[in-house]
Every structure is written in structure tokens, then in C-alpha cells.
Design a protein around this nucleic acid. Structure first.
Lengths: 327, 327
DNA sequence: TCACGTAATGTTTTCGTAAACACGATGTAG
DNA sequence: CTACATCGTGTTTACGAAAACATTACGTGA
């Protein structure tokens, strides 16, 4: 910076003003400084800038299992939105949903100095020992709605209700459910909404089959369901498990949707190419990511907005895997 | 830091030594300092540390399309490995494979000050205008092998050869290919290896059907193949396109694998639950991510290793989607 | 016994930038 | 025509930590 200042024949402070786009610089001077910057290949030093401003121009993202389609998409959208806002993204993956892992991730991010944190798919927030400083802006995607942080998520209840109702309206007596892991809020809310919808419709509630989001777990549940004669409709809590159910049905020689209907949740890009194409609930993960960044930036810039919870509307996508029950 | 020093009755420099785990500190003093740190909730300031050391404790990851399973998994593994090494990950997603986008990403990372960069799935590196400073350590995953940077990738040729040979050995006269986008090196190498394998076996080479990694593109290619009477074996350059091919075959009433065999590449978690379960080539993305970090850290720490290119071995996974051709 | 190495700690300086403050030139209102 | 705001710019200082250098207290070998 000193070199640039010397070359342009101005003080370093003027260079700083040009670098930060302040408006109280004469156009002629600005041009000279910019030319000198160009020539010397000047790049401002983030560390020094962060040191003096206390801002880092970075947001932290803590996510579980980026291998999962939804999380990966959300992360991608966050990164895009952050870049557009001039922020970089400090990513931390977490393998285990343990308090220790989450705490370590937070500590790491605190050390790495970010201006705010987005947390994807976690239910560990209420643990008091997490010690997030109260001044640290946080937004939660796909998490508990019970805690104190702003939240962006899909309306899981509405989405679930739309699939389950769709199946009931087709004439199914009831709908079986293959749930996600019980430590996931999304999974819990989908299971609750499934049950509520059945009860509201006066349909009998069969015991839930517990999965863990993986196709394997859906396959195991599907094998059980294939042996259940009066099962005519299945709602799996995500598309991967629905795929496992489909596979189990094929192996058992049960026709989908002739004998049994199967529906999923997420609408992954592959869903419409499954055999048969899967009826599911579409979620716009890009929108989630964008909204997370918006809410986070509002907090960072202290424009405290009243908008603390955002529920996006998922939409039912009916394909060939659901049909009326056999006569 | 000054507060900690005061509380512990030592100088700030001693606090610094304790914080950095230097060994020339008396155990008694160290304990006092640690206690003071604990009590005051002291957290070292990364910005200040980076300013004085010139190191940032961060690596940048530039990736295309984190929605793609392989890229997401690689990113996750990089993040894990980086964290274990005490580095954080600065993630930049890129939508378009344009020179401008890549350059912007690099510039952003330079500004954000990282110690090194991992580039996933890019072929823009040879563009001279990218201006990466020669001192910036870079590792490329899944990219061109022709440029000057260390590289970690799967042996695409071996993997491809193993599937294509598998199909030929089953008795197919030749194998059709649904390729990935031509601006992807992985896609190009798979296409080249496919052709070489056919030529080496004396099998006729049919024109490639061009896809873009998406199931949609595989579906379109599949519709064409379904109308090609003498097509008995298809090798799709990834599993998603293979899924599209399967769908097209189902819709056309062509039995897989009875009439036509289909194979993919990647072995995504869903592949064994496709209908029929997909023969494909398994790739260990976690290993790629780990090795990227290893190579990058070697550069960062100036332990220049002779090991500049790493080719991991993919393995053929034979499932039910491939069989001998109809008699 | 004395010179000198060494371990533990303190003092000063440095990193690159932006904020705070200061200053002169110009414009403007009373 | 004078007092006073405003604009463009320069000077000084602060940010928090670590490197470089200084100092003290010991121990040890010739």
C-alpha cells in the first residue's frame, strides 16, 4: 500500500479511501491511484483490514452430511448469495450429530473469525454449553423452530399433508410411513404431520418404520412393507428411502403403483427417472440458501428485522408411483 | 491478550507462547496463563495472527456444481481433512465454466487470503490470464493433467476400460457411449478410454451420444438408443445419465439387461437400488479429498515432495444391469 | 572462580489497514 | 469582507498478536 501511495504521489490514507470506494476522493486522484494499484498488482490484505475493522467479510456454514443432496444444494446457494454480497464462506462439515462435534465446529468458526453463522440441519442448538456469544449472528436452516435463532425452512407440515392427502384421496384406506432418523427435526415434523393428517381424515395410523435417510434403510423398511398384505400406500420421508422401498417392491414382485403406491419427499433431480417416476414433494433448496444469507446479513448489519422465521412452501409433484389402490 | 497477561501476572509475549504451544515456558507459568485464559474466555484473534505471520490457516476450495454427488463428497472430505490439520475451508462455488467466473473466484480467494487452493473439476487453468501468483499452492482434483499443478484424480482410463471390457467379455459386439459434457476432462478421458478399449478389442466404434451429466440428457440419449436395434450395451459416463437411459428403456419396453445392458460410472449411493441395480465403477471421493489436502499442505509447508500426480484406482462393481446380449 | 551457555521471561518492534484527527484551500452566507 | 462550513488530502494512532531482541537467573566446564 505504501508503494502504491508513493507511486501515485499521495498518502496511504488516500489509497485506502480509493480501495474502499469512499466518495470523498477527487476523480483525478482516484484514477492515478487505481493506475498505480493496477501496475503494482496491489491486493488489500484481508487480515489487516479485519484487524482494524473488526469485520471479516466471511460467514461460517456448519452442515451435516454434505453428501445429502439437499444440504449440498443449500450450501451451494448460500455460497452464491454470499459471494454476491461480498462475503466469503467458511465451511465446516460435521460427521456426528454430537454436542462435542457441534461445539468444536462453533469454536473453530469463532477462531476463524466469521461475521455470522448458518447452521444446516442441526438439533443441537439448545444445548446450553454451546456458548455462542450472544453477539454472533446465527441463522438456522432446516432445524428446530423452538430455539432463539432466526430460522429458514420449508413448511414440512404442509408438504407432508399434501402427499398424504393425495394418497388418501386416491382411495387408500391409510398410508404407511418410513420416517427419517429421530434426531432430525425435519424427520420428526414429517412424521407428526403424517400422523395428524391420517387422524384428521379418520384413517387408521399404522406403526412408523424407522429409517435414516439412506436408500438402504428404505429398502429394509420396504421389505417389511412388501410382506404386509394390507399395505397399499407408503410415504417415505425422503426420495432416497423411497427408492429403497421401490427396490424392495420390485424384488418382492409387488407392482408399483398397481398394488402399492409409493411417495417420497425432496424431489431430487433423479426422482422423475426412477422406475416408476416418483410422486414426491418438491423443495427449492436454492431459495433456502438465499434466504439464509439475507437474514444473516440483516443481523450482521444490525438492521434488526421483525422477520425471524421463514417458511417456504413445498409443492406436491404427482408422478407415476401413486395410483388408486387395487380394487 | 493484555488482560490475560495482567491476570496471570506475566507479559503478553508469554501468553502468546502459551497460546502457540511453545515449549520454552515453565509448566507453572503455563498453568497460570491457561487458567487466566479460561477465566476471561480468551480467544486469539485470527486476523491479528495472520497479519503478523503471513499465514491464514485456511485453504480455498473452488468447485463447480456442488449439487453433483462427487463434488459434494470431495468437498466434505476436504473439509474434514483440513479441519484435522487445523485449517479452515473457504468455499467458492462456481456456476459457469467461464474464464471470468474462475478468475473472479480466484481473485476473491486471493483477497480472502488463503494459504492454498484446491480446484475441483475445472479445465480453465491453462488460461494465461488467470494470474495465480506463482507462490500460491494449488492442487487440482478431477482436472486436466496437462497443466503445471499437482493433481489428484481417479485413473479414468482404467475405470472405463474395466466396464467396457466387462461388457465386451459378456459377449456384446460393441458398446455405445453416452458421454459427459465435452468441457469436462473426466468426460473426455472416459470417452477416449472407451474408444481405445473398443479399438483394442477390434470392436466397431459407434458415434458417441453427448450428454451433460444430468439424468435428462441420459434419458434423451436413451430414447435414441432404444430405437437403435443393434444396440445391446450402453456405457454412460456417470450414474445419473445411466438412470436416464434406464428410464428410456423402460418406457420403450426394452428389457434391461435382457435386451440391452446398461452401465454407469461413479457408484452413487443410489446406484444399487436402481431398477435394475446398476453395474458401475466405484470411486472413493473421500480419498480424493484427503489426498488433495495432503498434497496442498506439503506445498504450503514447503516440503516439496516429488509426488505431483496421484491416480486413485476405481473399481468395477458388477450388478444386475449388465448381462450377455440376447441370443 | 570465572566466562559462558541456556532456560525462562520481558521489551520493543512490526505486520497492513482504516479510523480519528488535523490542515489548507475553496465556497458561501450574513 | 469576514466567519464558518465543506471538500480533498495528509498525519497520527490503534488494532492484536508474534518475531526479534534483551534480560535475568542459573548451572557448568576449564
Amino acid at each position: 500500500m505504501a508503494e502504491v501511495a508513493a507511486k501515485a504521489g499521495v498518502s496511504s490514507q488516500t489509497v485506502s479511501r480509493v480501495a474502499n470506494n469512499h466518495d470523498n476522493v477527487d476523480e483525478t486522484t482516484r484514477a492515478k491511484v487505481l493506475a498505480a494499484m493496477q501496475e503494482l498488482g496491489y491486493r488489500p490484505n484481508t487480515a489487516a483490514r479485519a484487524l482494524v475493522t473488526g469485520k471479516f467479510g466471511a460467514i461460517g456454514v456448519v452442515s451435516f452430511d454434505v453428501g445429502a443432496h439437499g444440504n449440498a444444494r443449500t450450501l451451494g446457494a448460500i455460497a452464491d448469495a454470499a459471494r454476491e454480497a461480498g462475503f466469503s464462506v467458511n465451511f465446516m462439515g460435521i460427521r456426528a450429530q454430537t454436542e462435542a462435534a457441534v461445539r468444536q465446529a462453533f469454536r473453530h468458526l469463532m477462531l476463524q473469525s466469521v461475521d455470522g453463522i448458518v447452521l444446516i440441519e442441526s438439533q443441537m442448538l439448545d444445548t446450553p454449553s454451546l456458548h455462542l456469544p450472544p453477539t454472533m449472528p446465527v441463522v438456522v436452516a432446516d432445524g428446530d423452530t423452538g430455539h432463539q435463532y432466526p430460522n429458514v425452512d420449508f413448511d414440512q407440515a404442509r408438504g407432508t399433508q399434501s402427499v398424504v392427502s393425495h394418497l388418501l384421496e386416491l382411495g387408500h384406506r391409510t398410508v404407511h410411513h418410513v420416517s427419517g432418523p429421530s434426531d432430525s427435526f425435519a424427520a420428526r415434523r414429517r412424521a407428526e404431520a403424517w400422523e395428524r393428517t391420517l387422524v384428521a381424515a379418520g384413517a387408521p395410523v399404522q406403526p412408523t418404520l424407522h429409517g435414516d435417510w439412506t436408500p438402504e434403510s428404505g429398502y429394509l423398511a420396504g421389505r417389511t412393507l412388501a410382506k404386509t398384505p394390507d399395505a397399499t400406500a407408503v410415504f417415505a420421508a425422503n426420495d432416497q428411502m423411497a427408492l429403497g422401498v421401490l427396490r424392495a417392491m420390485h424384488e418382492a414382485g409387488r407392482d408399483v403403483p398397481g398394488e402399492i403406491s409409493v411417495a417420497g419427499f425432496d424431489d431430487v433431480p433423479e426422482a422423475r427417472f426412477f422406475e416408476p417416476p416418483l410422486t414426491t414433494v418438491h423443495q427449492d433448496f436454492d431459495a433456502v440458501g438465499r434466504h439464509c444469507v439475507t437474514l444473516l446479513l440483516e443481523q450482521i448489519e444490525r438492521r434488526g428485522s421483525g422477520l425471524r422465521r421463514l417458511a417456504l412452501e413445498p409443492t406436491l409433484v404427482v408422478r407415476a408411483s401413486t395410483a388408486p389402490p387395487p380394487a
